[in-house]
Design a protein around this nucleic acid. Structure first.
Lengths: 192, 192
DNA sequence: ATAGAATGATAGCAAGCACTTGCATGGAGG
DNA sequence: CCTCCATGCAAGTGCTTGCTATCATTCTAT
């Protein structure tokens, strides 16, 4: 990937994050990238092509892989905190807004599978983690998929709400939210 | 509101839900509403004006008011289930998609406050509910705002994920999700 | 029955859109 | 020094956009 192409991709993705795909014009892109408009079409077939190159890049892609779940200590509270922190590190407000900006009918078919990968990876890995924790005798049996969905929903929900409404919705900061939520989850599935 | 204007508003809001504000053209609107394009501009000042009339209508607005929280039984598990069920009844996938379709820079200033009202109402009412439950001696003291945020995040997260990915993300159905989540929350804040 | 209001049909406006063409320029490598 | 490739520049393509103007038609209320 030459330098000019990369500048074009970066400009495109930034604009989509801020204004959405349809509202992002090729003139905008050229201006922000600091290149002539016709250069876009020398490097890429069309506007959509730029985006598809963008979403295929590591840089513009959240990298939530099962690898993230290998670094566990088999201690429920610590591990859950680590999972949530890792998710929020990867899924920044910028990334959330980019994902929404990509929600155009013209792109949906190609980009939706990519966007969906992150939640899927998180949920299935978390479910698998719980299964192993049960094997190790550290937690009781449970509907682990439903539990993973509860934990992921709240992690995702907080991330999204924060990206959309900044700090206007709650005073609860990120670390505080994670600590308190994890405590509830841990306590919530413990036997009495 | 005369019939023609209402048809125009309905068509506009449906299209925004499906394609987003920028991708929705006035020709699209006229076709779907079954009226001539120039009629749009006889009834409304411009395209944006149609949307602003739309979002001010009960019909195109989720009605999550504190009233919803008056119908409580002061029984934690039942009440939380009722809150989550009521939220998901109001915030349908259609409404979620509409909210995202309204996220255009041209509209943001005017529509964002309206969209933000729903989470704000939910969180503050829930926090208030917990305070009263403490007064009644039904639950122990806690950081209630943080707790409300955890519960709202997971409710919102599930709703949003469901609207975006349909059933491709989890097999956990709505009732099951609510029941299991509430159990964890209730158990999670109980003393042992 | 008739006036007045609402709507349709048609045409068109300027502006903006994604995208193209032809040619000039500049810088790197042999 | 020359060649070649990447890029800039200016102009322009056909099409779509939001929006308007004019006039004909239909509906409604008295």
């Amino acid at each position: 990937m030459d330098d000019t192409s990369q500048k074009i991709i970066d400009a495109t993705m930034s604009l989509i994050r801020d204004k959405g795909y349809v509202a992002t014009t090729t003139k905008d892109i050229a201006r922000l990238a600091g290149v002539n408009e016709c250069t876009l079409f020398r490097k890429f077939q069309n506007k959509k092509d730029i985006v598809l190159h963008g979403v295929s890049q590591e840089k513009w892609r959240a990298n939530v892989t099962p690898k993230l779940f290998q670094n566990v200590q088999w201690e429920l509270e610590q591990d859950l905190q680590m999972f949530m922190t890792a998710y929020m590190d990867k899924i920044t407000p910028d990334f959330v807004n980019l994902s929404i900006g990509l929600r155009a009918p013209q792109l949906y078919e190609e980009t939706a599978p990519l966007i969906m990968k992150v939640p899927q990876a998180f949920i299935s890995s978390l479910t698998e983690y719980f299964r192993k924790m049960e094997e190790l005798g550290k937690i009781a049996h449970y509907d682990f998929e439903s539990l993973a969905m509860t934990i992921f929903s709240s992690t995702f929900g907080y991330t999204f709400l924060n990206a959309s409404f900044h700090q206007n919705l709650t005073k609860t900061g990120r670390e505080e939210f994670i600590k308190n939520s994890v405590k509830i989850f841990v306590n919530g599935i413990s036997e009495r």
